[in-house]
Design a protein around this nucleic acid. Sequence first.
RNA 1: GUCGGCAUAGCUCAAUGGCGGAGCAAUCGGCUGUUAACCGAUAGGCUGCAGGUUCGAGUCCUGCUGCCGACGCCA
Length: 481
Amino acid sequence: MPKQRITVKDLLQSDAHGTDVHVKGWVQTKRESKNVAFIALNDGSTVHHLQSVADVAHFGEETLKKVTTGACLGVTGSLVPSQGSGQKVEVQAKEIKVYGTADPDKYPLQPKRHSMEFLREIGHLRPRTRTFGAVLRIRHAMAFAVHKYFNDNNFYYLHTPIITGSDAEGAGEMFRVTTLDARKPPLTDTGEVDYKQDFFGKATNLTVSGQLEGELGALALGNIYTFGPTFRAENSNTARHLAEFWMIEPEMAFYDLEDNMDLAEDFLKYLIRYALDNCTDDLQFLESRLIEEEKNKKQEERSPMPLLEKLRFVVDNKFERLNYTEAVDILVRSKPAQKGQFVYPVKWGTDLQSEHERYLVEKHFKKPVILVNYPKEIKSFYMKQNDDGKTVRAMDVLFPSIGEIIGGSQREEDYEKLLGRVQEMHIPMESIWWYLETRLYGTAPHAGFGLGFERLILFVTGMTNIRDVIPFPRTPQNAEF
RNA sequence: GUCGGCAUAGCUCAAUGGCGGAGCAAUCGGCUGUUAACCGAUAGGCUGCAGGUUCGAGUCCUGCUGCCGACGCCA
């Protein structure tokens, strides 16, 4: 008897008929008739189940009674061609070891479709569903592909701090990190909380972006990227926002905005192609799941194309690139604007609303769009100013249905211009001096961007809520599991 | 945070202001190999919580709580 466990994935590809195998996993369903029971087993290695066949007389009721949906089993048996049509091979069971039963009266997962809302309530068990298994395997593959892409292209993985003392980026509200007694913190003479007595001797927060530190890396190592958790204490309640999410932020010395766009497009296409090449089974499962789900929807609410076709479409087509100013022109002349169908008016100088971005991506161009050269007033202080005095070298990559997937820019490398913006925006020198010094000593043109990892996974998996593409979502009023 | 919607069996959902139901799951039985098996039966409920209107409230009204969707902030 082989002691080594073989995964369901390997088993299903095997043609070593007649050999004994040992497989372990969780029961998805059991179908039983008088003489024979069929146990569908899943071990997380693939979206497919293994069918193991158990002779009722051989095992007896006592054992088979414990084999219920959710139970964990070890099955030893002979790998044989399947008599049924659903699978090529199956395991004719000789021994069944029950590692853990799952009381069928209480186990919440059933062999049926559950709503995503219900599965969020049982976050500790939802990885056992096929849908979450598929999403989590794809998530893993995408994380691996991120590292592979950058490693193959000579980028260094830079670990930027998670606890930070700077509030410079202004990307959003921050979570305070402190060891002070929340009930009676030490106070200064003026009655403020005295963070000099805190653990780090100053006020600290969880990072909202690794970019500023990333720039330090790029201005020494050339090309770097970060890939880590990021925290925003915004009270955002949408299907696209998390309080804790993972962000990928490459930063490149000697890149201008064009280079930055080229990298962003190539990177996204590489990742999606990687999923198409390496996650075929999971993507096919998610695609058919989506088609099934959309049968209940009206024609106009259904996706314009199936998941795999949508992914191939993005890989095969060049992203549309245009200036913010051009985008505003298109929007002003658009049908919805003329008919007054936009909730928000389109005007040069204001940020584009979701409805405007969606119109450009989904109706006008019908493909990903990169918008560049935004008005400086609506963008961050560190972005390189254009000669027109009005715009900065910012870029947003917009994807269908999820909107902004990447935000980036060429950085301002001129010390005086950067200092000017810092002063205009009243950023305290004691929190930003080190950043400014990079422009004082051997400054260089450079650029970078941030890719929201979960937004990428949303797009690749076709899932609709960002809470369902991260194992343990953190959102306002929810830090369960 | 703003606006809107929803809350009924373990799950997904029905029920004109008038006796709370179905499918799935569970339990029991049947079935010669099934594919989210099939057939028969059984059991399962403080209709989210607190008030109010009414002869009568799951249904109408008020408040609270939770969830969902859209929007804002962004990635």
